[in-house]
Design a protein around this nucleic acid. Sequence first.
RNA 1: GGUCUCUUAGCUCAGUUGGCUAGAGCGCACGAUUCACAUUCGUGAGGUCACUGGUUCGAGCCCAGUAGAGACCACCA
Length: 860
Amino acid sequence: MKSDNVYNPGALEADIYAAWEAAGLFSPKIRNYNGRETDTKNSYSIVMPPPNANGNLHIGHGLTIATEDSLTRYHRLRGQSTWYIPGADHAGFETWVVYERELEKSGKNRWQYSRDDLYANVWNFVEKQRGAMELQLRSLGASCSWEDLTFTLDENVVARVYSTFKKMWDDRMIYRGEKLVNFCPHHQTAFADIEVNYKDEEGSLWDIAYPYDGGEIVVSTTRPETLFGDVAVAVNPADERYKNLVGSTVKLPLTDREIPVIADEHADPEYGTGAVKITPAHDFDDFEVGARHGLDKIRVINDAGEMINCYEYSGLKTLDCRKAVIKDLKEAGLLRGEKKIVHSVAHCYKCDTTIEPTLKEQWFVDVKRLAALALKALGHNEITFYPESKKKVLVNYLRGLNDWNISRQIPWGIPIPMFKKVTEDAKSAPEWVFDTRTNLKEIEIGGVRYLRDEDTFDTWFSSSQWPIICTNWEPGVENPYYPLNVMETGSDLLFAWVARMIMMGLYVTGEIPFRDVYLHGLVLDEHGKKMSKSKGNVINPADLVAKYGSDAFRMGILRGRSAGQDQSFSENSVVAGRNLCNKLWNLSLWLESTVADNGDTGESYTTDNFGEDWLCRELNESMHLIAKDLETYRFADAVEVLEDLIWNKYAAWFVECQKLFKNIPLLKTTFEDLLIIAHPFAPFLTEAIWQRLPWTEGFLINQKWPERLVFDPISAEKFEKLMIIVSEVRGTLTRLKKGNNWPLLYGDDSLIDENNLLIQKLTGVSSVLPTHGTPKGLRLAVPNSEIYLDIPEKLIESYKSSLTEKILKVGREIDTLNARLMNPKYVESAPAALVKETRDGLKEKETLLKNLKNELQIIK
RNA sequence: GGUCUCUUAGCUCAGUUGGCUAGAGCGCACGAUUCACAUUCGUGAGGUCACUGGUUCGAGCCCAGUAGAGACCACCA
């Protein structure tokens, strides 16, 4: 018959969360801190990496919340003024892609609207979607301060972004540059380097002859269509083959232009023919070469990916033009060869269109100074990384960082507060002015008209200031919540986000934005593969929460996970979490009825027997370990310690003992402690139990982390001996396979005298009796104890092989200990305590061996 | 090419400044069963710590190298 005593999370979780929220328990205790509260030891702040406002939470978010919320709840229980700040991301480009797809579905496109209309439309679109994500955060138990939720387009965000931009503009760290950018012809926007996917692709390397009087120079290219933008041919200065051509000109095929031959290190003599065409407007390397040699930049591809400025080829798509050029070169007799190669090609990470390096005027941040600030702080170890190795990775990245393009050509984002002069005769007026009136298309300053730059900021420009914004940091005002205690996020965001937060935090506030960085790895499927929709191996956290409960999910996802490591995940670990929840739930049912049956006197506890002292000792130790693990971000270890405590120590040993000798005050105290230390991991279940127990008051969520329990250590030690005896009896009975209905006899032993009932209960033997000096039956392998299982001669005989095996094993152990002690250098150099331990161990094993051998003698 | 990570039980992973007989969960095998829990209880099997050298009284851990797996950065005319 299946029992009804099964923990059923679904019915409870929503109500509990609502009760916490209604009671205002997620808010930091100290809110109005201006000048009043500066004790940072008693504050704890952490921000949530803002999930996409119009998206659903995926498994990575589940891990994020499980991690951050267990930290939050732990520090809250520790009495700190704890502030977990939630956010929602406008997710500039991501959201834009979704919106534009909707727009296209209804047969429209972005060009039919003004930028401002588009912005308003997306705002409404996101407004409709919002809320789902927040509900999911609640169902995961995130105890974040909802009244402080920051949306990445909120007024205070924009204000901070503008003031930082102004500061950088004044500090000459922002410049307008015509540079090549990664441009997606489909989305019509530029991308940062890290937003581009490189993929290996098959392509052709064509050799094309560029003739000159008396010969030709053959260049190798994968992009013949860009030859109309060629402004030079480069050869390596050390390349003897071409030395005499440097400085002369060659004819550009299919045109009537002459271009120079130049010497530049960029040309690799080993690759292709060693000569390379230079197209500064359409290739990143060539752009650099062009800059070094003062060459022109000729654009031959427009934003839509069509050819321009190239005779009859104009208007063709790039790939069509490539075919035409190859055909015409062949006809002109200038094609010298074609070779299939595999090369890596940049793609848009959203629509997979080939990225077209495009010449654009954009806003750039000069990152040298920013990176230097970050490198200095990292060099001084001002920020601790978990895992530590990620610091090295970050330093390496910061050292090679290029200037940061912060312009995006999409309407959905924070408008760049820069206006360009349009009054032509105002010669003395600056070309660009900073102004925050971005709600206007056009402004006038001193009779000069300026038009707003239509671009918006790269999302990371605002995100990089997230800790500053969320904690309401203001210059000159003491703020106990800045720097944050920890920044927790995925290790895939180390460059895009963490690096930029460090740089901008230091630049704006002069202080690091957070003290610790904890990076979690990717959650892979159970076979170690990345989850993706196309593979169909995506696990949705909401499904698991619905099936097993939020607590089970949280413990399941934290189990077996370590910092920075991409690790697999399967439903099994959530099942294990669910089982633990059920265990705790049933413990609480037993405890509640036991307290009710025995009367609750409300007295404070004392310890009255070995098992009670032992449990107190173990509970103290587990509390200490869990605290230490959480403070060093070892979540999996903490869950493991908790599980061992609840399942093995509390339920399997302590409660079984308590069924014999009930100590109601101690049961109550220790179980309350258990609930508190389990709360960071299983918030709903523990609160549900707390609310149900008749003697508890208030909420569990804001109780005090338990004090150490008082116990007698010698008594606790003795219980361990009892455990060894019980285990040995159980093991022997199992191996005999003849049931457990035998008497257990023991020699003169006060420990067993005092606990014979307990031993009988835990092992199931028929009785536990003194030998009265006449030992008989099978002697058990318990050191320093004389214990016999009173079974018939025949059965003892059948146990002989098992005994022999044991003797051999103990013999081997004695050998290794002996060998160690025979080594004079070990005795000399190893710590004294260790040597003593070895000696004691040896003595114990030798006695045991003697006893076992005696026993074997008797059997014979 | 550069940076970083990983290789420990059938699977997924721990193993914190080197210290006794290398751990956990899941899985597997054997056994149990009225009263908190079959989402249970008891017992057990299972490991050449990738490989080769070195340092040390002592190496899964430190050092050098080899092999394999993966991530990221740069480049690929």
